[in-house]
Amino acid sequence: MFAAAILAIIVTMLLILARALLGPTVWDCILAINSFGTLTVLLIAAHGFLMERPEFLDIALVYALINFIGIIAVLKFFEYGDLGPGKRARLDEDQG
């Protein structure tokens, strides 16, 4: 039955991958990659249950954290063109 869950996850991953490859804009790609990361977390957890090795959950937890931070970093880069604080602070000053 966990195999059924893994099957559903993989089908969804393929659909999302199609969107990431098709995605007309960069935002579609980032959105698809974000969802793909969520599904990877689920896949790792389901695989851990299938193999009866609960240690996989630790990896899933860490992957969830890394996925979130990675997406925010990519978005920050695309919005400000910079990952440091300098340019962003200047941009905020210009706007405010």
């Binding site: 039955m1 966990f2 059924a4 869950a5 099957l7 559903a8 996850i9 089908v11 969804t12 991953m13 393929l14 659909l15 999302i16 969107r19 959105l31 698809a32 969802s35 599904l39 689920l42």
Partner: peptide, 15 residues
């Protein structure tokens, strides 16, 4: 679990 799988696939189709 099956319901979750269904909604995952629906989300993928919607995407």
């Amino acid at each position: 679990i099956l319901g979750g799988g269904f909604f995952l696939i629906v989300g993928g189709i919607g995407l």
